[in-house]
């Protein structure tokens, strides 16, 4: 693979919400939240080394433990923070402006990412629990955003040795909360630093996709923050690092851009609602009445 190509992306995660998740949501709704319809925090530990062979991305597996602040992360697991907004009324769930909601979540990720590029990964769930029928309506979104200035206009495959990729894998293993790293002037792998990458021009990103040569759409978040942090950086090497093999390198060129919108009200395209079992961008329904 050496020719120029368009940079495509896959969905970052595939969610699995098990029965215990809905049982805990029911318990919270009845015993704690009652009519309180505010965001509740969630956390998922991603297992990047045990991805089913047939999967195109890392599973986002939510159980009742997702509601626990400290849910005993295992070695090699990567924590991802999220939140759930459970509506009291089905009609409120239906009427919510879903695109506006996801854009708001993307803006939060963007602002978090400006403070620390590793913090621009999260997920959000909207739900309605019909506790009479034990039927749950829900929709999970992973905010992915791209600013016009971070549009990639030119991408070309670069050679990358297994030895180099293993070095990055080892770094990510040792730095489980990091999504991004760079090379410094001594060619050591170090934490992201906008002053250093402006000189060394090598960015490595932890990837959740398993599709050959196609990174996760979360890459757009990192590239948007990078372009904001280092506006003069137009050409750089992008390493897509996977813990289970399939890492690859790209030479990337950003679009020329003289103007950037305000960081507090950025112009950005947002995507990330998960498709349902029918392949539609629409909510899912789980009927646990028979249980």
């Amino acid at each position: 693979m050496s020719s120029e190509k368009v940079l495509n992306y896959t969905a970052p995660f595939k969610s699995f919400l098990d029965t215990s998740f809905f049982q805990e949501l029911s318990r919270l709704k009845l015993d704690v939240l009652k009519l309180d319809s505010t965001f509740q925090p969630l956390v998922v530990n991603l297992d990047l080394r045990n991805i089913p062979k047939s999967a195109d991305q890392v599973p986002l597996f939510l159980t009742s433990r997702g509601f626990e602040e400290n849910n005993n992360r295992s070695d090699n697991e990567v924590p991802v923070r999220g939140k759930i907004l459970n509506f009291n009324v089905l009609d409120d769930f239906r009427k919510l402006d879903k695109q506006h909601f996801l854009r708001q979540r993307a803006l939060e990720c963007w602002e978090d990412g400006l403070r620390d590029i590793n913090n621009c990964v999260s997920f959000a769930i909207i739900s309605f629990a019909d506790l009479k029928k034990y039927r749950f309506y829900y929709w999970l979104g992973v905010p992915c955003f791209q600013r016009p200035s971070s549009t990639v206009v030119h991408v070309r495959s670069e050679p990358s040795s297994a030895y180099i990729c293993t070095k990055y894998q080892d770094w990510f293993d040792a730095n489980y909360s990091k999504w991004v790293c760079i090379l410094n002037e001594n060619e050591d792998i170090v934490n992201y630093d906008k002053h250093i990458i402006g000189k060394t021009k090598v960015l490595a990103v932890r990837d959740t996709s398993t599709v050959e040569n196609v990174p996760s759409a979360l890459t757009k978040n990192f590239l948007s923050v990078l372009r904001h942090d280092v506006p003069d950086l137009t050409d750089f090497k992008l390493l897509i690092i996977r813990q289970k093999g399939g890492s690859f390198a790209l030479k990337v060129t950003f679009v020329s851009s003289d103007s950037q919108s305000s960081p507090s009200n950025p112009d950005m395209k947002v995507s990330g609602w998960e498709k349902n079992m029918q392949g539609k961008l629409a909510p899912r329904v789980v009927d646990l009445g028979s249980l």
Partner: peptide, 21 residues
């Protein structure tokens, strides 16, 4: 309580057509 057919209709009603990818 919604019958199953109405649930399908409700879900279809919420479908987003033009999500950016």
């Amino acid at each position: 309580d919604l019958p199953i057919d109405d649930i399908d209709e409700l879900i279809q009603d919420m479908e987003i057509k033009d999500d950016y990818e």
